[in-house]
Design a protein around this nucleic acid. Sequence first.
DNA 1: AGTTGATCATGA
DNA 2: TCATGATCAACT
Length: 224
Amino acid sequence: MLSHNSEPQNLNELMTRAAQIAGLTLGELATKAGIKVPANFKREKGWTGQLLELCLGASAGSKSQQDFAHLGIELKTIPIDMRGKPLETTYVCYAHLTHIAGIEWHNCNVKNKLKQVLWVPIDGRRDIAPKDRIIATPFLWSPSVLQDQQLRQDWEELMELIALGKIENITARHGQFLQLRPKAADGRALTDAIGPNGTIIQTRPRGFYLRKEFTQQILTDAFR
DNA sequence: AGTTGATCATGA
DNA sequence: TCATGATCAACT
């Protein structure tokens, strides 16, 4: 990175910066940052998110917390098509599969990550070269009472299955708005989980993801 | 191995 | 065509 912007000191500063990148292509933004855009994302899948972290001044290296911890804001890019529809699900956080006693919705990672999100929609159509993909208008979002309830219901259903040792029965088809899917370097990665009868088993690491139907609603509300 | 940033690619 | 399951890279 040639220019990692300083951390925005307040919400106003963050939103001003975000507004200034709207309409730029990833190529134009990358030039400002002094980096090159990959021809495709077959290898650098998280490149766009990292470019935005760089340009908006997200606290780099500070993992397992919000991108702008002092502001309580999480940054998320979301690929959209010409009509503004999400092209991918949205990763939320890693799912802990053991030591889950005492974790409730109100103090869980999913709820905390999504308290306040700065969404940055970006044209993600694959027939457009990454350098030509245009950044749409970023906006701040917090879950509505209904959205919180929707996520909570899915989360509780998934966590109950995990707690009951049924992780291997969970597929991405569970959950209406929040789903659980593999999240690892490859299929060989393993982590501890609760198995049948409370034994510890090894399974593929998982992560929580927002379904497109959920993020579509967020986008619709934001631009309505 | 865990966790962040995500998109890819194949089967249905 | 599309979502699920798999995968890639960086950093700790």
